[in-house]
C-alpha cells in the first residue's frame, strides 16, 4: 500500500500548530498564537511568513491603541491543505 506524501509545509511542529489553531477560530492575533503555541516571537514570525508565502494564511497588519497588531486568518488553500494533511496522517495510522 502506498501512502500520500505529507505536505512539507504542514509537517513542521510550529506551522502545524498554527494552522490547527486557526482552523478552530475565525482569526487570531499574533500574541494569541504566541501564547498558545509557546513559540518564540522570532520563530513564530518566520513560520507565519512561510505560511503566508505559501498562501495558507493571510496576515493583516494594523494598529490598536497605537500598538502594532498582526492578525492571522486561515486561507482557503490552507484549509484544503490541512484537510489533505489530516487525511494523509489518518491513512498512515490505519492498521
Amino acid at each position: 500500500m502506498s501512502f500520500a506524501p505529507l505536505d512539507p509545509i504542514l509537517h513542521n511542529q510550529l506551522r502545524l500548530a498554527v494552522v490547527s489553531l486557526l482552523v478552530g477560530v475565525e482569526s487570531a492575533e499574533f500574541n494569541f498564537i504566541l501564547e498558545k503555541t509557546g513559540a518564540t516571537r522570532g520563530n513564530l514570525s518566520v513560520q507565519l511568513t512561510k505560511l503566508k508565502d505559501e498562501g495558507y494564511i493571510t496576515i493583516t497588519k494594523g494598529y490598536r491603541d497605537n500598538y502594532p497588531l498582526t492578525t492571522c486568518k486561515l486561507a482557503p488553500k490552507g484549509i484544503k491543505a490541512f484537510e489533505q494533511y489530516v487525511k494523509a496522517i489518518q491513512d498512515y495510522l490505519k492498521p
Binding site: 490547527s20 482552523v23 498512515y92
Partner: peptide, 24 residues
C-alpha cells in the same frame, strides 16, 4: 517549546492537531 524543525510521526502530528484545536 514548539519551535524545532524536527520530524514528527503521524501519531504526534495528530496529537498536536487535537491539542491545538482543543486550545482554540
Amino acid at each position: 517549546t514548539i519551535s524545532m524543525e524536527q520530524s514528527m510521526t503521524p501519531a504526534e502530528s495528530l496529537k498536536l492537531i487535537e491539542s491545538m484545536i482543543g486550545q482554540a
